[in-house]
Amino acid sequence: MKKIINTTTDSEIIEEYVCNGCGNKVQVIKMKMLFGPQKGQWFETKKGCDCEVLGIIKTQQQEAKKARLMKIFEENSLINPSLREATFDNFIPGEFSQSFEKAKKYVCDFDIKNPKNLLFQGSFGTGKSHLSVSIAKALTAKGYTTIFISTPKLLTKIRNTYNKNSEHGEEKIINSLAMVDLVVFDDIGAEGETSGWVMQKLFEIIDLRAGKHNIYTTNLSSSEFEITKDMGRIFSRMLINTDLIKMNGTDFRKRQFVKGGA
């Protein structure tokens, strides 16, 4: 039976305690209905607890954080317009259902303290980039910072920093890649050069991300990476703590074209 601490004609303080949630002193008050059809009946209420208000504030903060993380993704990612709407929901697995499930599992198992990489390797138009964008967006929604980078565009962007009229410096671009939780390096090998500045810079950036979460996509086979020493060195770095997902098949765009013309 609850002990009555204080009482008046229309109310009784029947319990006092410190709330574990908000830390406030809370009073449980038994009060008499003064108006309405239940006039004269007693009910219990709480006074002093801020848990509901704090819950609303926490939800608002979480939504603000998600918006901020999505802004980081959108402002820093170098992504083709055709991929901007890509998500797990609009990916059509077809023959790549296993790849689809592995991509979703990567999101579920993501642990900032246990970095792991994925390498999507295969022919054109099979959905490698779509799945990579989907992973990045899903992790952003979970509260992680992510960036999706078209590797050829990244190298062009860095090269443009050498122009004296450039708004951004090379160091700022590279630092932004170093700081986020996940970077997707899309279309490695499409830069068309196999030695020189491009290979050196690409190695430098991938090496900088060692020990962090990364996703790589490429149309090159393992043997094509071994054409030059520089490419082989990059490929070796990409394979560290990396799960390989092969996606060789019919170009999705060609499948749609054939279907539409049938």
Rank of each mutant, 00 (worst) to 15 (best):
K3G: 04
I4P: 03
T7K: 13
T7G: 01
D10N: 13
D10K: 14
E12A: 14
I13W: 02
C19Q: 12
N20A: 00
N24G: 00
I29S: 02
K30R: 15
K30M: 15
M31F: 04
M31N: 05
M31T: 03
K32T: 02
K32W: 00
M33S: 05
F35Q: 04
G36F: 06
G36E: 09
K39A: 13
G40N: 09
W42E: 13
W42N: 08
K46W: 00
G48Q: 09
D50N: 13
D50M: 08
V53T: 09
L54D: 03
G55F: 00
I57G: 06
K58C: 06
K58A: 14
T59E: 14
Q60R: 07
Q61Y: 05
Q61V: 10
Q62N: 08
E63P: 05
K66I: 12
A67L: 12
L69T: 03
M70K: 09
N76R: 10
S77L: 08
I79L: 12
S82E: 07
L83Y: 13
D89T: 02
N90W: 07
I92N: 09
G94Q: 08
V107Q: 05
D109T: 15
F110E: 08
P115N: 00
K116Y: 14
K116E: 14
L119Q: 01
F120Y: 14
Q121T: 05
G125S: 07
G127W: 00
K128W: 09
S129G: 12
L131S: 01
S132W: 04
S132M: 14
I135K: 02
A136H: 02
K137N: 09
A138H: 07
G143A: 03
T145Y: 07
I147F: 01
F148N: 01
P152V: 05
P152Y: 00
K153V: 01
K153S: 12
L154T: 03
L154G: 02
R159F: 03
T161G: 13
Y162K: 08
N163I: 08
S166Q: 08
S166F: 11
S166R: 08
S166A: 15
E167Q: 10
G169V: 04
E171N: 12
N175F: 06
A178V: 10
L182Y: 02
V184K: 02
D186Y: 04
D186V: 01
D187F: 03
A190E: 06
E191C: 13
E193Y: 09
T194I: 10
G196N: 07
W197R: 09
V198D: 06
K201Y: 10
E204C: 09
E204A: 15
E204S: 15
R209V: 01
K212I: 08
H213T: 04
H213C: 08
I215T: 02
T217W: 02
T218N: 04
T218Q: 06
N219C: 13
S222D: 12
F225Y: 11
K229G: 06
R233D: 11
R233Q: 15
R233I: 15
F235V: 06
R237P: 12
R237N: 14
M238H: 09
L239R: 13
D243L: 07
I245V: 13
N248A: 05
R253N: 12
R253K: 15
K254A: 11
R255N: 12
F257T: 04
V258K: 10
V258M: 07
